[in-house]
Nucleic acid binder design. Structure first.
Length: 183
DNA sequence: AGCTTGATTGCCT
DNA sequence: GGCAATCAAGCTA
């Protein structure tokens, strides 16, 4: 079943664990989500913490849309917008579809390193600012619910300096496709 | 208009 | 484990 606005119109920390095991495709390229992180407006680590700006406008737009931004001047990161000011950062997926396309964009790396990190995932799926604010239930996106209950583990989020103690990183336990093992 | 920083990655030792 | 790459948002002035 396709995940749409109703699914995302909830707090990000409630949506995030249910995204583990879901299948994400962009132009027919993608796989199963194995690692995500939740951010909301009360969270000092969130882009939305200080309110709406031109950059984070999509985070305050309708639920179920994409929020794409560039970090460190180099990499793109993909988020799914939940309730206003909250979103889920997509950090890693298990490649299943269009793996040849991914290799063309990422070069000759091991399959487990194709999408093992937010920047790598965006490169492999061809995501950049063009996808910002687009709805997730329409082309080029395809997002479908997990077909089985997932073994989800939680831990501290990665790469942030504030809000470190909030355990809003969600991973599929034991997956070899994570950006890093669970701490 | 100039300065700092970052939800990262890959290459170096 | 350390660190450079590279750029725009968000400050300060």
């Amino acid at each position: 079943m396709t995940l749409g606005p109703t699914f995302f119109d909830r707090p990000a920390e409630a949506v995030a664990p249910e995204l583990i095991g879901a299948t994400l495709l962009v132009d027919r390229v993608g796989g199963v989500l194995v690692e995500v992180e939740a951010y909301d407006q009360a969270d000092p680590a969130s882009h939305s913490f200080k309110g709406p700006t031109p950059r984070n406008a999509a985070m305050f737009g309708p639920p179920g849309h994409a929020y794409v931004y560039k970090i460190y001047g180099i990499h793109w990161c993909l988020n799914f917008v939940c309730q206003p000011g909250s979103a889920v950062l997509i950090r890693a997926l298990e490649p299943l579809h269009g793996i040849d396309h991914m290799h063309r964009r990422r070069g000759s790396v091991a399959e487990r390193q194709l999408c093992s990190g937010p920047g790598k995932l965006c490169q492999a799926l061809g995501i950049d600012s063009r996808q910002n604010a687009l709805p997730l239930d329409a082309a080029p996106f395809s997002l479908t619910q997990a077909d089985a209950v997932q073994d989800v583990a939680t831990g501290p989020r990665i790469g942030i300096t504030k809000g470190v103690d909030t355990a809003w990183r969600f991973v599929r336990r034991g997956s070899p496709f994570l950006s890093r093992p669970l701490a």
